[in-house]
Design a protein around this nucleic acid. Structure first.
Length: 663
RNA sequence: GCCGCUUUAGCUCAGUCGGUAGAGCACAUCAUUCGUAAUGAUGGGGUCACAGGUUCGAAUCCUGUAAGCGGCACCA
């Protein structure tokens, strides 16, 4: 006699269903509308296929398009499978490997039979995918044995899949999903009941790229196809629109349009700052100096080039030599004939970081425990020969200036210092309108120092964040195993910008390795020599990158205090020229960065041009203003203009041009 | 570094089948004195990324190099 299963539904009711029935049967029993809308099921909280039979009594929540997060993930995962099926249909002999969902869509990695895919292949693949969706092929789950899987993959010439099948953990139930009766992929699932549940107008293949098998550069280079996938056409269009808006704030584009900086082949990876861009830098530098002066740091400047032996001792030479700029300590040969250098000189290197130089300053003279904590700050210009494929505008460059400091302190001062740093970083990020998450990056596989040392350093950083009240969900608190530096665990600050993207910027690292390697010591109360702990920390990260982030965050519309040109005085008729000059002089005297536009152009033209240049305030003067001693202010982003007496305008601009920390 | 794509005027781009280059903007000159996102006319400006090759002839076809773009890997 057949038993009945008790299925508890979200409304509290319980349905009795025969053994072997599925969530789809429950949906059908409730009503045809739900049967049609159901996409998957949550069984005791676990997301499962709609057509997978119940294991026993359970709670059931049917998943529909209204459960957006689940529905999107299911759809994206299915799009990836449909993509793989389409590619194998169009390009026989292509091997499939792996294809997950992503934040906005999906990708699939292929081992192509002949050549990697190109953008030109995408339209045909999209059309093939739409065909598979239109065919409404059922997606059917089957449990297979490992031997079955390996044999199938080997038979099909799918060597990557076979390799993977052999390595899947023993504990896992191995499953495949059929698409109709003619195609299958090995997959944990779950999936939608059929390809027809996908909206054929809700996806778009976006790009192709290379990607290493299993993310390891020693492995084969696969050909990856990316797509973006959504539940309906409207969502897709909104997403594509967001991408266009994000592209408009690209710092490389705005950097050119606003005449802030440029990059060129002759110094690739290093920035040519133009006067306007460097004004932003100078404001940030002045801001940061006020911040560190107030927080008890001492600013220093250290050599750009040091003997290679210094880098050997610090441990950087062994690990990072290939990314260092190395130069001979030698005058080049003056003869035109013969080699430029003898090759016999000692090697020096451009500093890739400031830490060892700061230790050398610390080591001058004898330090007492009374000197600690000693906070040494530098706007440190560093050079790293980054892999060429990594360079990206201002975000990843070969020459950069860090807002770098090292706090030399006693063991018992670490938590207080880290906590104080948390407060300083919080204040600074708020001044720029960023929210942030804090993460703790734990010991990496390859590292220096003892286990006890790592235990202690990680514990201290954790404790400081807890004490600062930041180890909460609100601050995205999370620990990242294996992500630390080779000498220390790191706290990382991940900023969220105006359109929701995140940027890792600030850091503090608790280091007991470098003080040891570079022999830093101080005399303690007991008269004995002790090692200080060295806290490496930065808030902007680098000026280059931080400015890049600010440009994108503000979409070029920098707050007045950072704007390179804070106001432009523009005339309507040449009769107002003298008055415009007078207004400009008065603004300059008030410390405003102002330019004058007396050109013989229509006011429409001037408004357009200065708006595109993202000048915060345009002060328009014509006959009327000249007679009345007023200005007409048009503020960036507003269509309205405001008339006010000059004195009032100056007071307003002065207020807005005051940096946030001085208000 | 790896995979794919790209490189033509200061900028954005067009250039068909191989027959030594074109637009808009910008710039210069002239006219225009105008009230809130492009006034008009005229003019100057290019070793078609670089180096080889094929060809009677190369921006165009081939090879190599470099840089840029999208990813991957890396990121002290």
């Amino acid at each position: 006699m057949s038993q009945l299963l008790k299925i508890s539904l979200p409304d509290g009711s319980v349905r009795e269903m025969p053994v072997g029935s599925t969530p789809a049967d429950v949906a059908a029993a409730i009503g045809p509308g739900l049967a049609k809308a159901a996409l998957a099921a949550r069984i005791d909280g676990e997301l499962r296929d709609l057509t997978r039979p119940f294991d026993g009594d359970c709670t059931l929540a049917l998943v529909t398009a209204k459960d957006e997060a689940d529905a999107l993930d299911l759809a994206r995962h299915d799009f990836a499978h449909v993509l793989a099926e389409a590619v194998q249909a169009l390009f026989p002999g292509t091997q499939i490997t792996f294809g997950p969902s992503t934040d906005d869509g999906f990708y699939y990695d292929f081992a192509p039979a002949e050549r990697p895919f190109t953008d030109e292949d995408l339209p045909a693949i999209e059309a093939q995918m739409r065909g598979i969706i239109a065919a409404n092929k059922p997606l059917r789950r089957e449990e297979w044995s490992r031997a079955q899987l390996i044999s199938r993959w080997q038979q099909q010439g799918e060597s990557f899949k076979a390799e993977w099948a052999a390595e899947l953990p023993d504990a896992e139930t191995l499953t495949v999903y059929w698409s109709g009766d003619d195609w299958l992929d090995m997959c944990r699932g779950p999936h939608l009941p059929a390809t027809g549940k996908l909206d054929p107008n809700a996806f778009k293949l976006t790009r192709v790229s290379g990607a290493y098998w299993r993310g390891d550069q020693n492995n084969a280079m696969l050909s990856r196809i990316y797509g973006t996938g959504w539940l309906n056409k409207k969502q897709l269009e909104e997403h594509l629109h967001r991408l266009e808006e994000a592209a408009k704030r690209d710092h490389r584009k705005l950097g050119g349009e606003m005449d802030l900086f440029h990059l060129q082949q002759e110094a690739h990876g290093s920035v040519f700052w133009h006067p306007k861009g460097y004004m932003i830098w100078r404001e940030l530098e002045a801001y940061m100096r006020r911040a560190i002066d107030g927080a008890g740091y001492r600013e220093v400047k250290t050599p750009q080039i040091m003997d290679a032996r210094q880098w050997e001792q610090s441990g950087h030479w062994g690990k990072y030599r290939e990314n260092m700029f190395v130069i001979p300590d030698e005058v080049p040969n003056v003869d035109d004939e013969g080699p430029v250098i003898s090759g016999e000189a000692d090697w020096m290197a451009l500093k890739p970081m400031n830490c060892p130089a700061h230790v050398l300053i610390f080591r001058q003279g004898i330090k007492s425990y009374r000197d600690l904590p000693l906070r040494i700050y530098e706007n440190g210009c560093c050079h790293r020969n980054e892999p060429h494929g990594a360079l990206h505008g201002l975000m990843r460059v070969r020459q950069f200036t860090q807002d770098d400091a090292h706090i030399f302190c006693r063991e018992d001062q670490i938590v207080d210092e880290v906590q104080a740093f948390c407060a300083l970083a919080d204040r600074i990020y708020q001044d720029f309108g960023f929210t942030y998450a804090i993460k703790l990056a734990l010991r990496p596989e390859k590292r220096f120092g003892s286990e006890e040392m790592w235990d202690q350093s990680e514990t201290e950083l954790r404790e400081a964040v807890v004490k600062a009240g930041l180890a909460t969900e609100h601050y995205g608190w999370e620990e990242l195993p294996g992500e630390g530096a080779f000498y220390a665990p790191k706290l990382e600050w991940h900023l969220t910008d105006a359109i929701g993207r995140t940027w890792q910027v600030g850091t503090i690292q608790s280091d007991r390795v470098l003080p040891e390697r570079l022999d830093a010591g101080y005399v303690a109360e007991d008269g004995g020599k002790h090692r200080p702990v060295m806290l490496h920390r930065a808030i902007f990260g680098s000026y280059e990158r931080f400015i890049g982030i600010l440009i994108e965050h503000y979409a070029g519309k920098l707050p007045v205090w950072l704007a390179p040109v804070q106001a432009v005085v523009a005339t309507i008729v040449s009769d107002a020229d003298d008055y415009a000059r007078d207004v400009t002089e008065q603004l300059k005297a008030a410390g405003i960065r102002v330019e004058t536009d007396l050109r013989n152009e229509k006011i429409n033209y001037k408004v357009r041009e200065h708006s595109l240049q993202k000048v915060p305030h345009l002060l328009v003067v014509g006959k009327r203003e000249a007679e009345e001693g007023t200005v007409a202010i048009r503020t960036l982003g507003e269509e309205r203009q405001r008339f006010m007496p000059l004195a009032e305008a100056i007071a307003m601009l002065k207020g807005e041009a005051t940096p946030p920390d001085l208000r």
